[in-house]
């Protein structure tokens, strides 16, 4: 049996410390230890992107990272995006443009879009589609998701 490993991760601005098994995946740490269930497990094979979070500001599939690898890092999940009661422009965009149907892929889509808009604040439609190509929507509502991200980019450019 392997030794538990101490970790400290800043999650959504809060320092969280725990002793974890080295094989604990980051997504399970977030969902089961911290009860942050907004981050979803979809395929569990690094393809669907439902588990996407920001790890030190970069979009990351949290099903393909051990929690111990995030020790000393900052993690942002969908729960950390809004400013109090005020939705993040991406959340607002998904609301206004009906960017979701079943909603399962939505947290991962939004976190990928957050990474995209950090790197490229005014992406073209093609760049948006490429930027979210690591996230699958099985309702196939991609057009509305693209519209939602464009909506957010425009709002963020104005503010």
């Amino acid at each position: 049996m392997s030794e538990p490993v101490p970790i400290t991760i800043n999650v959504n601005g809060r320092r969280r410390s725990a002793m974890v098994e080295a094989r604990l995946l980051l997504v399970h740490y977030l969902r089961e230890n911290l009860n942050l269930t907004g981050t979803h497990v979809g395929c569990d094979t690094s393809q669907c992107g439902a588990c996407t979070v920001l790890l030190d500001g970069r979009s990351t599939k949290s099903c393909t990272v051990f929690a111990v690898l995030a020790d000393g890092s900052e993690v942002q999940t969908i729960e950390g995006l809004a400013d109090g009661d005020e939705l993040h422009p991406l959340q607002d965009g998904f609301w206004e443009e009906h960017g979701l149907q079943c909603g399962y892929c939505t947290p991962g889509m939004i976190m990928s879009a957050a990474n995209l808009l950090q790197e490229n604040p005014s992406p073209s439609e093609d760049e948006i589609r490429e930027g979210i190509s690591g996230n699958l929507c099985r309702c196939t509502g991609y057009q509305h998701i693209v519209n939602a991200i464009q909506h957010a980019a425009e709002r963020m450019a104005q503010s």
């Binding site: 992107g49 970069r58 979009s59 990272v65 990474n115 190509s133 690591g134």
Partner: peptide, 9 residues
């Protein structure tokens, strides 16, 4: 390679 998340790691 892969997608943005894969390229980030």
């Amino acid at each position: 390679i892969g997608d943005a998340q894969v390229r980030n790691r």
